[in-house]
Design a protein around this nucleic acid. Structure first.
Lengths: 211, 211
DNA sequence: TAGATTGTTAATCGATTAACAATC
DNA sequence: TAGATTGTTAATCGATTAACAATC
């Protein structure tokens, strides 16, 4: 039985965490909901409601204790748990993801890389070795890796997703511009950059044209 | 006076477009709202409502004409307009974005790259040259580029955003894990990968724990 | 014609915002 | 104490879903 957290709140909490960490680094002791509100352009009441979901209490007149709020957010976001994942596809985007250094802070750990290109097998990216995809099922099962990052070309996305699911994947973070079919118990998050860009473009345009 | 399109609808339309293009390539003539619905796991009525926003009419019993729907979507999404942009930051992620080939389809064109690293200035990435950031204001103004893609380290994000805004940027697609401050008339879309991952993680967890 | 699918109106649901009492 | 800020209840708003009439 989990308390139900609204998805919009879920999306805001990591943003709060990032601000709280800034305050923490600056050695501040308290933060007010109005400060978070201003920085993120989110309603003040909303911020308090979201924080209330964490069962973290603030002090009237002073705000929320940084250490405490940080701890509650870390607990909720499961920050200190290592989240192991495998990445399939070592093209430009795949390599950029593998080298991205913003993930550690949240405990995301990309343990191994996979590709089908024989020239790439055995190469190392930082500490991470590139394996042939044929090794995927065995490794995924042995290491109990449930999270897959897919950064392969559109045409291969479904095939690789099938392999991942068969090997026990429970969540696929899909960077390929493709809709992949998976069983209902597997979570797919599509990170389609082109679509994201279109939303930017349409919002920009709507702005200019409105009234 | 623009008709107001709900943001959630806005986000779904590019997905419909991608499916419609598949059908188009396969030479199909019609698509039913129920087919789109199933592929994207979106309510059928929702799909019809979204399409209605485009003023595109379907035929009872057969569905929507692919050519027509495709044309309406392209018009709405402004697909055939070239959308010029500049990219600041040519690290791993910046280069991956510069080389990403999924953008053309939507008319996004990255015209030039910028960095501060003297070793990179003058290099070419495909057809695109890397310029020193000091050239940015002049080029942005001459070419009337309004869209900036920011792929710089966290610490430089605000500084680069300031430069971009001063040079007339109206939209910033921010890949840096930083909250940047801009005037109210500038649109910022934050593409924080780590945050996106956390949402995946939390959803995955909620699933496992629920009931 | 009969039946499937669209298009639209009405009902529901849930998230956001406003109002305000509680509290340090 | 007075005043600022939290915490919570109620009101609003908007998006989703359900129901069903229109139509090919």
């Amino acid at each position: 039985m989990t308390k139900k957290i609204p998805l919009p709140s879920l999306k805001r909490l990591p943003k709060y965490y990032s601000i709280v960490c800034e305050y923490y680094k600056e050695g501040k002791e308290y933060i007010k909901s109005s400060e978070i509100s201003k920085k993120l352009d989110i309603d003040e009441t909303q911020v308090r409601k979201d924080i209330a979901l964490l069962n973290c209490a603030g002090k009237p007149k002073v705000g929320f204790n940084i250490n405490e709020l940080k701890r509650y957010l870390e607990e909720f976001l499961d920050i200190n748990n290592m989240k192991d994942s495998f990445l399939i596809g070592t093209g430009n985007l795949g390599l950029a993801i593998a080298k991205y250094n913003g993930f550690e802070k949240y405990g995301l750990n990309i343990t191994a890389l996979f590709d089908t290109d024989p020239h790439k097998i055995g190469l190392k990216v930082g500490e991470k070795e590139i394996f042939h995809v044929s090794k995927f099922p065995d490794l995924a099962q042995r290491m109990r890796v449930k999270i897959i990052i897919l950064a392969v070309p559109r045409e291969e996305a479904q095939k690789m997703a099938d392999i991942a699911v068969k090997a026990g994947a429970k969540a696929i973070w899909n960077f390929a511009p493709a809709n992949i079919d998976v069983p209902k118990d597997v979570l797919v998050i599509n990170q389609d950059l082109a679509t994201d860009f279109m939303v930017l473009w349409l919002q920009l345009h709507n702005k200019d044209l409105s009234i």
